[in-house]
Design a protein around this nucleic acid. Structure first.
Lengths: 125, 125
DNA sequence: CAGCATCCTCCGCGATACTG
DNA sequence: CAGTATCGCGGAGGATGCTG
């Protein structure tokens, strides 16, 4: 049902590292976004998170599971198939992520200005 | 004008490390809270942040300044006096912190349950 | 009072290679 | 397919001591 994840749903050029808000570890926020549309498999998650190594993805997913944000389900079959899905608690973080994104978009220019003012990297104007 | 900061405004027993939301570095959120009521001096901030070392407090404050959340003002005088104050950008984070706290309070019990389920530390019931 | 200098430890995160 | 096993770096954070 759920469509495949957009491989470019996370722009590598996005200056999101300027935003001082983090939910969970480095990848947790993005993983939760990926799971918004429904359950996903391990390999499926690796696509939008382009350069993530399996070890790190496993770490993040295990942490999310331990904290009750995600459930892991193993569906036996010809080829192994493991599903990750948001719990209601995990889904409750989506609102927070939206709030954070809204704040970031509203203030991104100020963040950029502040950095430039702090480290005057060869102004042209 | 502004009353002294409550030395116990941050309960060391508070299970806030269960909450997967962070604004800036480890101390940034608390510092911003401290500055909500108006400008504060370096030593003043050290009181509620009981065990913070001056080096670490300086680090956090410099980062907040670099990112445009705080302004640092040196008032010369008999004894040195440095004020830290929230900018409007910094003040805009207060709403986010409130949202995060609201989420945390609403879901704290679920967070605790999840951890207990994950690591069954000697159940009695 | 408001820091700076130094040293050190822990852990997040990643690269690489291998497995049921 | 969905991981595990090892190795290693870099940076956050802290302890301790000194300074204009």
């Amino acid at each position: 049902m759920t469509k495949p994840l957009d491989p470019e749903m996370f722009d590598p050029l996005c200056p999101s590292d300027l935003v001082p808000i983090r939910v969970g570890d480095k990848w947790a926020g993005m993983i939760i976004q990926c799971l918004e549309g429904g359950p996903r498999r391990f390999s499926e998650l690796r696509v939008p998170l382009r350069n993530i190594t399996p070890k790190v993805l496993t770490q993040s997913l295990r942490a999310l599971e331990r904290d009750g944000f995600v459930v892991r389900t193993v569906h036996a079959g010809p080829a192994r198939n493991v599903q990750y899905e948001l719990t209601s608690l995990g889904r409750s973080l989506l609102g927070l992520l939206d709030t954070a994104r809204a704040w970031a978009e509203a203030h991104l220019d100020e963040l950029i200005d502040a950095r430039e003012t702090a480290s005057p990297a060869s102004r042209t104007s």
